[in-house]
């Protein structure tokens, strides 16, 4: 049996918001260590890897591994009904046909209970071995979201160029070009505002802007985002959770 209680429903709301536009159906795999999701978008370009660790829950028990096949659009309709500050409890039997979603208001005696039908999903699982990256950038997630939104207005591709001194985000479209250059710096008072650039080898990669626009929907999960890049390889974008992470792997574009 699975019984997981969150101190606030806001974490789950943000997670669903962050992934629902990339994938529609996915298995939530529940183990004694927490909940994981791996899902690939229909075009096989973007992969989501989510870990909500046991410590993200106020109370958590999962005696046996349980898979919850969830339609995220339906789940989102239910999860939106809770207030962000409500307790959120997920309950499922060992071989469940549905999952119970319970919101409890902390001040009033109001308990809202919903049941979501589960699906039997046959999903591709991709083996991601430990990747070696040539460059790692950590920056404020809101800044990365703004750069993505701004440059996406010019072109359907977004280029990321990393040199020793800086990282350049660039787009080249029909009516013009744009770029944003960031240098690494340390903000002692607000560490989350810092920009860290670690580069072993220079990088020049191009990605589909629409996929990065979907990735930045994870912005509300974390103050900062880490971008890991390797030549001619998928990039990794990571938002850290209080205990766990939301990672996106994005395949690059290449010259034909």
């Amino acid at each position: 049996m699975l019984e997981g209680k969150f101190e606030e429903s806001s974490l789950m709301k943000k997670v669903v918001d962050a992934i629902k536009d990339s994938v529609k159906l996915c298995n939530f795999n529940c183990t004694e260590h927490g909940v994981t999701v791996q899902a690939v978008d229909d075009s096989r370009v973007l992969l989501i890897s989510l870990l909500i660790g046991e410590a993200s829950f106020e109370e958590y028990r999962c005696d046996r591994n349980i898979t919850l096949g969830i339609d995220l659009e339906s789940f989102n309709k239910i999860i939106k009904n809770g207030n962000s500050s409500d307790f959120l409890t997920l309950i499922a039997e060992d071989s469940p046909d549905n999952v119970l979603i319970i919101f409890e208001d902390k001040k009033k005696d109001r308990v809202s209970e919903y049941s979501l039908k589960l699906m039997d999903l046959d999903s591709d699982f991709l083996q991601i071995d430990d990747m070696e990256f040539d460059a790692t950038i950590t920056m404020p997630s809101s800044e990365f979201a703004k750069i993505t939104r701004d440059l996406k207005t010019l072109s359907e591709s977004l280029q990321i160029i990393v040199t020793k001194e800086n990282v350049k985000f660039s787009s080249d479209g029909d009516f013009g070009t744009g770029n944003v250059v960031l240098k690494g710096f340390v903000d002692m008072d607000k560490p989350d505002e810092s920009i860290k650039i670690d580069m072993a080898r220079p990088i020049n990669l191009t990605f589909g802007a629409k996929y990065i626009a979907d990735i930045v929907k994870g912005t509300s999960l974390s103050e900062s985002v880490t971008i890991k890049l390797a030549d001619k390889s998928p990039a990794l974008f990571e938002y850290k959770l209080p205990s766990g992470f939301l990672r996106f792997y994005l395949a690059p574009k290449f010259d034909e």
Partner: peptide, 14 residues
């Protein structure tokens, strides 16, 4: 002209 690659050319199906 740029071509979008697939994750399947980098990661194996399990």
């Amino acid at each position: 002209k740029l071509k979008q690659s697939s994750l399947l050319s980098f990661f194996k199906k399990k």
